[in-house]
Design a protein around this nucleic acid. Structure first.
Lengths: 341, 341
DNA sequence: GGTGTCGATGTAAGCGCTTTCATTCGGATC
DNA sequence: GATCCGAATGAAAGCGCTTACATCGACACC
């Protein structure tokens, strides 16, 4: 109901400054098209009246809102919190604002939110990953709403992301090089989640390239508890010497479970993560993981999306990932015992 | 520039349905004021034309946007990420969307962002803490923009928060009860941050109630590195047996520093946190900290703000905090050695 | 001095929706 | 059967801004 008290309008400003509303509008939107003397008169009037343009009117007349929407699965994962934060910080102050929605990894909810953001006048969208109902892409195309996908890479759509398959494959090769042969994976839920699927498949491909297969794969919802529970299940099979995790949170959960089970890491079992978020340096031992430039990605996504909104044909950005070796990996016990390294 | 292709408008829908634009508008906004038969005709037309109301026009005509703004210091701290996430999830789908900005703990930046959000038509605001330029509060009052403050408590403004002083005082008393007498604190920067200041002062008050004083207080920017560096400095004074940290991230940093310095926790030194975010269970040993119901706070803030926007006089919500004892506290070595407990 | 040009500013027509007020119409009441 | 009432709907007036187009001068050029 919020009925505002009668605010100053362009007309008030125009009158006080002794110019037309058009000039006031120009002062605010393209100051260089107005002569300095006039501009100052107008700005003085703006200040005197404490004038702020009415958002709705501006949006209606200009067909632009300066609002950019982002839909992420959750802000609870530092990966998205940091990425969104960097994205937001990269948006020019005052020119754009960020409308954020979190979908909870629910495709239907994500669709609603995309529609809601566009309905709220979003000039552009930041989305996570490629996989979603094609109808959404069609709809965005019809509505001519530009978008950038992040945290993945592909060739169908503009993106600022990285190669999940390659990233985890590098990690798998490192683990294989240590001598591990009995390897399992704790993956995020792959349904509707191309990041999780790419990581699982990337790891599997690297494994099969050596003629090996997983000794176990468990899909769980991302989270400390999920990682811990899955690790417990996997460790039923005591021949497993390495557990590749789909992200750092799962790995941290696995690590906690290992500690509580009395397993030593990395002596008894190697555990690896993915993302390299803060917690990777907090665990004990510190986590061996795959570094993803989340902050840089947020920045690049912001730049790309602004280009698209401005009508420029921006190119997608593929960022590099890197294996970060800390303290949770070691040769398998068997290798040590039998001198197989 | 995003020039949309000519979309269907109310007029198109009205014409197709054979009713007036007023009726179409009513169908969409207060369906019960329209007879069922008419409503269905209209809805059919809406679907047939794939109609979506124009956001700007709606905002202009109704003086409401359905946008709620939130300004937090950073999303990089899980505390805010979780709170905002919960807040967003508690907003009725489709009725409100959340516009997020992060200020980086910078007061001037926060002011800009508040203005930007209001300029973008925010119907209400979620802000962190009480301390800010009074002019901002005046301005919000003039603009009649309702707001809710979180992560703090007070009596000047509507809030959904908790008592930082009481929370940390409880922790301090627990540490004192263990026998510690040489206590130091790693605090966040207190300038312009009432949460940090309340925690520092709450801890100090509890300490002085026992006739004691801090053996050291260091203010650092929140962050793992800050906590680690401050801990190193503090440990120059080897008589210190307990370090109270202003939040979990600082505590995790301190813990990491302790480990790298070869100090055992909690045998050699007690370290406590504040917030009880995920990382508190990931550190080794797991962190003794003060639990704050961040998720619940986000929910309550959403409820309260909606009441205020609806013109109802919502009451502030003070949530309880609780000391969570895990593995980073123990009696001081001296006490053990000299049997002083 | 007349003409053309160009930059600065003014005029006024919407943008698409909500909402007030008026109108209509089908009963209920006496 | 006349009167009144209320619910459902329509007509039309804005909401406050942007922008295409018109206008106005000043100045350069011939």
């Amino acid at each position: 109901m919020t009925e505002k008290t009668s605010h100053a309008t362009v007309d008030d400003v125009a009158q006080l400054a002794g110019v037309s509303t058009a000039t006031v509008s120009r002062c605010l939107n393209s100051p260089d098209r107005v002569v300095a003397a006039t501009r100052e008169k107008v700005m003085a009037a703006v200040r005197a009246l404490n004038y702020t343009p009415n958002f709705g009117a501006r949006a209606l007349a200009s067909k632009r809102t300066g609002i950019i929407g982002a839909v992420v699965p959750t802000l609870e994962n530092a990966v998205f919190a940091h990425g969104v934060d960097a994205f937001e910080r990269s948006l020019p102050q005052g020119k754009f604002s960020l409308l954020v929605a979190s979908s909870g990894y629910d495709a239907a909810r994500e669709k609603h939110q995309i529609e809601a953001l566009v309905a709220r006048g979003a000039d552009g969208l930041l989305l996570v990953g490629f996989e979603r109902d094609p109808a959404i892409y069609d709809w965005l195309a019809v509505r001519k709403v530009p978008y950038v996908l992040a945290w993945s890479s592909g060739d169908q759509h503009p993106f600022a992301g990285f190669d999940n398959r390659a990233g985890i494959a590098a990690m798998m090769r490192m683990v294989l090089a240590l001598g591990h042969r009995n390897i399992a994976m704790i993956s995020g839920m792959t349904e509707g989640n191309d990041r999780a699927r790419d990581r699982l498949e990337g790891a599997r491909a690297a494994l099969e390239a050596e003629g090996l297969a997983f000794r176990g794969v468990i899909e769980v919802a991302y989270g400390l508890e999920g990682g811990a529970a899955a690790f417990g299940d996997l460790m039923q099979d005591r021949s497993i010497t390495a557990v590749i995790c789909g992200n750092d949170v799962l790995a941290a959960g696995a690590l906690r479970a290992a500690r509580r089970m009395g397993l030593r890491v990395p002596e008894d079992v190697t555990i690896t993560g993915f993302d390299d978020i803060d917690i990777a340096e907090i665990t004990f031992p510190e986590l061996t993981t795959v570094r993803v430039p989340h902050t840089r990605m947020g920045e690049e996504a912001a730049r790309l999306l602004q280009d698209l909104i401005a009508g420029k044909a921006g190119g997608s950005v593929l960022l590099p990932t890197e294996v970060v070796t800390r303290g949770t990996h070691a040769p398998p016990v068997d290798s040590v015992r039998f001198g197989r390294v």
